[in-house]
Design a protein around this nucleic acid. Structure first.
Lengths: 144, 144
DNA sequence: CATTATACTACTTAATTAGTAGGCAATCAA
DNA sequence: TTGATTGCCTACTAATTAAGTAGTATAATG
C-alpha cells in the first residue's frame, strides 16, 4: 500500500471543505460526521496540512477550517505528499535513505525513478476542482 | 512505501539468474552472495515466485534455480504483483476489501483507479531484458 | 463565564516488514 | 552408500508503521 488512510482522509476532508465552506469556516465535527471519519484522528492529520499552509484555521465558537486557496490551486500530489510524507514507491528514493552503497551501479534504480515520476505526474495532473467536477457530472476516468 | 524488499529482492534475484544461468542452474547461495541479500530471506520469497511459475528448480547437489522463460517474456509487473501480493496504491482497490459501503458514490475512487492503471501500465511496459539492456549500455531513463 | 471550537501529547492495539533459526528432503559424487 | 550440497518448510522475533482513542489545555464568542 502506498497511500494510507492519512492521505485518503486528508483528501476527503479537503473536498468536504471545498463543498461546504462557503464564506465561513467548517467545524471539524461536521466534516468528520459527513465523511464518517474519526474526528480525533482528523485532528492529528490537520497539523500536517497546516505545516504546508493548505488550510486556514479559526479557533473558538464559530471556528473551524477552510481552504487557504481555491480548489483548482491544489493538486492531489500537493495534498498526498504532505500527508504521506513521501510518495516514493521504494525506500531507496527517500532522501534520508540515500546512503545505499550500490546506488551508482544499481540496475533497478532507474526503474524506481521512472515509477516515481509516473506517479507524481499523474497526481500533479489532477486538482481538487477536477475531482469536484467529475463528481458533479457523474464520473468518467482520469486516464484516457 | 509501495514496493518492499520482497519485490525488490525478487527482481534482483531474477536479474541475477538471467545474467548467470547459462545452460544450467544457479545455486541460491551464489545469487545471494553476489546480490548481498540474506539467502534465508530469499528462500522465503522464492515459493511465491514458484507459485506463479516464474522459476525452474533443481534440487540436490548441482541444483539451483533458473528462469522458466526468456528474460524478454517477463514484465516487471508480473514479478512485482506476484511478490508484493498487490500493487494497489490504496486498500480500496484490493478485491478482498471491496465491501466499502460508499463505493458507488465515492468521489476519490476514480482517482485511485487511474493511479493504479498508470502504475501497472508503467511496470508492464518494462521487461527483464529491458533492464539488462539499459544496464549494458550505461543507463538512460525508462520514461521519456 | 459557560459553551464550543481547535491544539497538543500520550497511549494502545494490530498488522506488516525484514529478517533468523533449524530441521527435513532430495540428489549427486566419490 | 554415505556425506556433502542443495532446496523446502515452519516457526519465531524485533522493530516499525497504521489507525486509531483519550484527555487536557487553549482560544474565542455570545
Amino acid at each position: 500500500m502506498m497511500i494510507s488512510t492519512r492521505g485518503r482522509y486528508a483528501l476527503r476532508l479537503m473536498l468536504d471543505l471545498a463543498e461546504h465552506q462557503g464564506n465561513g469556516y467548517v467545524a471539524l465535527k461536521d466534516s468528520a460526521q459527513r465523511q464518517e471519519i474519526s474526528k480525533k484522528y482528523l485532528e492529528q492529520i490537520i497539523p500536517t496540512l497546516n505545516r504546508f499552509d493548505l488550510l486556514r484555521t479559526a479557533r473558538g465558537y464559530t471556528g473551524g477550517y477552510r481552504l487557504s486557496r481555491k480548489p483548482e490551486e491544489y493538486t492531489l500530489g500537493d495534498i498526498l505528499r504532505a500527508t504521506e510524507g513521501s510518495l516514493a514507491p521504494v525506500s531507496c528514493l527517500e532522501s534520508e535513505h540515500n546512503e545505499c552503497a550500490h546506488r551508482a551501479e544499481c540496475a533497478t534504480l532507474p526503474v524506481w525513478e521512472g515509477l516515481d515520476k509516473v506517479i507524481n505526474e499523474y497526481l500533479d495532473g489532477i486538482t481538487l476542482q477536477d475531482v469536484l467536477d467529475r463528481q458533479a457530472d457523474g464520473g468518467g476516468d482520469y486516464v484516457i
